[in-house]
Design a binder for these strands. Structure first.
Lengths: 256, 256
DNA sequence: CCAATAGTGTCTATTAGACAATATCTA
DNA sequence: TAGATATTGTCTAATAGACACTATTGG
């Protein structure tokens, strides 16, 4: 539908309109690299961000967040999903709206109001893509390193906001599950949380999450067909109980 | 600047571009009406939303969220602030980004990607405006009632999202201060919270907020010039201690 | 045995949760 | 004095926080 089709006398052509509605996507993942020192040890994990290297004007050669222009036939969310799929091949993913970025002059191409999203993608989806990384100028960067880079547009602002948000969400929601396999050990979970929020320290982590009344519903023990607890010794000599997230999230409050 | 001024060969006119970038603002306030039964009693408070009645196509005569089109020289946030100022006269206000609304066909005028904000405004700012309410077709509606109304565009979706967000924020941040005077009693604070989140119940509220280690920094006692605690008997026979918010907000976590 | 992670015991201080009791005013 | 809100007392159970300790098993 073209807007001027209507019978209302409203004519959008009378007004200066935006030159495009791009979306930018901050794609986070946590990479796991096995430690060389010992076997049976937790891998080294790192929070990474996917960046692409621009081939076209403006900011040619600079690293930028993936993204692209919205079409009239899709929502901004669908647009971001599509771009995400085109960049990474990932379809089923946790993606949320972040903020709008619209400071005048932010885009040399014209008046561009960008909407940013952040997505959490499991490492396994990006593994294939990472392999031929240098060739296609799509790379993962450690989040902190990317923050120090000179990115195209106002993408550093976007990245900073996304990082703040993902850190907050890591502690207040169960997004940790996006970085974990279906079944995981307490050690893995703790490590994932600490990878995103380094200053999170909780010596009694296991006890708190498994046996305090107000939190024990967040995760549950994984059991096999026979109802026996499932264990894993992938990361430790002593087999560890496997857990899975339930779909319950406690309601937080600063007042209670 | 017009986009086609650049030397890049990029021409936004080649693409279908949005027909406008509107912002919509969900303006919340809490009204206080004195109880007629007794004096010296807490007023009846209610969470309200400001709606305007549309005079122009489309959705003529229907109630809608205030908002308007963004100009090329301002950011979406500035646009929303400006619209808010035009609607309510309020300038200094707590406003946050909510989400983008961009479902194709959401606006009969054309391809309009709207960005919604929500703002919290103290009753006192809207009091004058409320007076001549019927005349200008700007009114406050109880939030729950507004949710059941048939609003223009997808404004019901926006309102629902805003209501969910303000409820979450009420419990996890100190936005309660936006609805309170600088100095307030514990009773007032509790009432404001319950006005926004009716199922929040905390029998030991006062004790928790004043004397638990992890929370006592959220508010502090108000003291007069001589260092004596300031009391108020506005809402009670027995004078109550006045408090003020500090600028500290505890970090919440489902894991600790 | 050592290394590395999993998980438990234990002790004290703090907090939660539920009610009862008392305090301080005004009308 | 009755009524309304403020504030404290009290008791039990749960949780926090710190640290030491035991468990399991590959190498």
């Amino acid at each position: 539908m073209n807007a001027s089709d209507n019978q209302s006398g409203y004519d959008p052509k009378k007004y200066r309109t935006p030159d495009g509605a791009p979306s930018d996507i901050v794609i986070f993942t946590i990479t796991s690299t096995e430690r060389t020192t010992a076997k049976k040890a937790l891998p080294i994990r790192e929070l990474q961000v996917l960046l692409i290297r621009r081939k076209e004007w403006p900011f040619v050669g600079q690293w930028a967040l993936p993204g692209g222009f919205c079409k009239e036939t899709e929502s901004m969310y669908e647009c971001a999903l599509r771009e995400l799929q085109e960049e990474t091949g990932v379809t089923d993913v946790h993606m949320e709206s972040l903020n709008v970025y619209s400071k005048p002059g932010r885009d040399p191409r014209g008046w561009m109001i960008s909407h940013a999203f952040y997505a959490l993608v499991h490492d396994k989806w990006l593994a294939a893509r990472r392999a031929d990384t240098d060739a296609i100028d799509v790379r993962l960067f450690p989040a902190e390193e990317a923050l120090r880079m000179e990115l195209a547009f106002d993408h550093r602002d976007i990245l900073r906001d996304a990082l703040n948000k993902v850190r907050e969400q890591m502690l207040t929601t169960t997004i940790a599950k996006e970085f974990l396999p279906e079944e995981f050990t307490i050690g893995e979970l703790y490590q994932v949380i600490r990878t995103v929020v380094p200053d999170f320290e909780e010596p009694n982590f296991m006890r708190k999450i498994t046996s305090t009344q107000s939190r024990k519903g967040i995760i549950e023990e994984a059991k096999d067909a026979g109802g026996q607890p499932k264990m894993s010794n992938r990361y430790s000599q002593r087999p560890a109980q496997l857990y899975r997230f339930t779909d319950w999230v406690p309601r937080l409050s600063i007042y209670s």
